[in-house]
């Protein structure tokens, strides 16, 4: 939110503000990247003091993201004034990788792919997740990817919409000279695919 806007509405309580309201020019209201980064950094440090392994740290981040995901789902469906619930798998995934992504990060995900090996697995590719913009993972933490928070958000959105899935963030090596990118691996529960098959 820019300073002009803040100055013009100093007394509106957050609960009194319009929930559908967007920022200027129909674009969603924006939050400072620095503010987010500092908060996220403190979150990671807080969790790091309370876990014993990298896997635990990622799990904590995923849990934190899960709650955010549930709320994001609620808010986005409300903002879009959706009349019907999304019941099919593919439209749901496309909605996550485009609309939800846009609401959260101001851009769509780099790509959405179906796994060639397992039909219950989908992948969302992201070259530079916002959570990782300022993070350099030290060598002793190996494969840790702080985008686990975003994986949790995806899991929360999908689970809230009755598409329970396991979502995890992975690093993928790029050709030399390029930074590694992140892949969110989405593995749906068997019931989702069974339902999908029934719907034909």
């Amino acid at each position: 939110m820019d300073s002009a806007k803040r100055a013009s509405a100093p007394r509106t309580h957050i609960l009194d503000r319009q929930i559908v309201a967007a920022g200027k020019g129909g674009k969603p209201a924006e939050v400072s990247l620095s503010a987010f980064s500092f908060l996220f950094s403190e979150m990671v440090q807080y969790f790091q003091d309370r876990v014993t392994s990298i896997a635990d740290l990622e799990r904590k981040l995923e849990e934190a993201g899960y709650g955010m995901g549930l709320r994001v789902l609620e808010l986005q469906t409300f903002r879009e004034r959706l009349q019907k619930r999304r019941v099919r798998l593919l439209p749901m995934l496309q909605w996550v990788s485009s609309n939800v992504w846009k609401a959260l990060f101001g851009k769509t995900a780099d790509s959405l792919e179906r796994s060639t090996e397992n039909e219950d697995e989908y992948m969302i590719h992201e070259r530079e997740p916002m959570t990782n913009s300022f993070v350099s993972v030290p060598a002793d933490l190996g494969q840790l990817n702080c985008a686990a928070l975003v994986a949790g958000v995806i899991a929360g959105v999908l689970d809230g919409a009755s598409f329970p899935a396991r979502v995890s963030a992975h690093n993928v090596e790029m050709e030399k000279g390029q930074r590694e990118k992140t892949v969110f691996l989405i593995k749906f529960d068997p019931e989702v695919l069974a339902r999908e098959a029934r719907l034909g």
Partner: peptide, 21 residues
């Protein structure tokens, strides 16, 4: 300020070992 101070794995006053920096 960007790549060191916003990095959760950096401890203040310690040597800077941040790849991105």
């Amino acid at each position: 300020t960007d790549y060191v101070l916003k990095n959760p794995f950096y401890e203040l006053e310690m040597p800077i070992r941040c790849e991105l920096f």
